[in-house]
Amino acid sequence: MQHVWIVLGVLFVLLNVAAGLIWVERRMLAMWQDRLGPNRAGPLGLLIVLADTLKLFFKEDWIPSFADKKIFVIAPAIVVASVLMSFVVIPFAPGIVVADLNIGVLFFLAMSSLGVYSIVLGGWASNNKYSLLGAMRGASQMIAYEVFMGLSLMGVVMMTGSFRLTDIVEAQRSVWFCFTQPLGLILFFIAGIAETHRLPFDIPESESELIAGFHSEYSGMKFGMFFIGEYLGVTLISAMTVTMFFGGWMGPEFLPGWAWFFIKTFAFILFFILLRASLPRPRYDQLMESGWKVLLPLVLVNILVTGAVLLYLKG
């Protein structure tokens, strides 16, 4: 019975966080761009969340007559499902984890690599050239970046000797992995931004070139799924960064574990928004070149050095 409560609780909190991020992101962007942002509905404009969600529900849910209907409907569901599945392995506090798999890290990587289908299929099923271009860019960007996303986590796995996420958090009791694996942290975070295709890596949708890229033809709640999926993805990458590199629920005693986890995750979500507010979008070829020619070799060097140091310390 306790298990059911954990599942429902995690789902409830995540969906509310994703919805709440609508307000957080718009207020923060406004602050960093020296304007007010949403401030009419409710105190501090908080009711914009409700208004935005209701608007999405009441909009006409239109499927273009030229689209491949079944795939057009499946695509937005894939992104939300795959991101929510990834949260299954994340330990929010001691004992609060949906399924503590002993292949946790790999499970996260598998689920995040499935998310690319929503972009590719959504863009293809829309039968629109801008959407298809967005889908093509999305596919190659995510394939390129998920390669070293997995490899950047391997340093941490080598130091822990386990793929289980609770073991990884426990191993950071004395020192967080952000101090011993700084290169891994930076590379993982860059890959994470590319995986969630947020600015500056929002090349699949880049509205100034491709209208809205892969989701140009989507409206109503199907667009809402992509929207929620993006915010859930941001939350997922932040939570994963905290779990792998910043000690998960660890923190001074005066606050409970889940509160520390929440605070750290929120800090990274804010960092995501700050990046969006401050960085320009690179060109498509620059993105691919930096991925394959700079970041991938760096990741391999990181693994090699970590292995060598571990061997030296052992023997």
Binding site: I103, L106, F107, L109, A110, S113, L114, V116, Y117, V120, L121, W124, L132, A135, M136, A139, S140, M142, I143, E146, G150
Partner: peptide
């Protein structure tokens, strides 16, 4: 099981889709 998902379902089939769409 999980490597089958990562490598085949997650990477190779995406490239398949990519080529077929092109």
């Amino acid at each position: 099981a999980i490597v089958n998902l990562i490598v085949y379902a997650g990477a190779i089939m995406v490239l398949f889709l990519f080529v077929i769409m092109l």
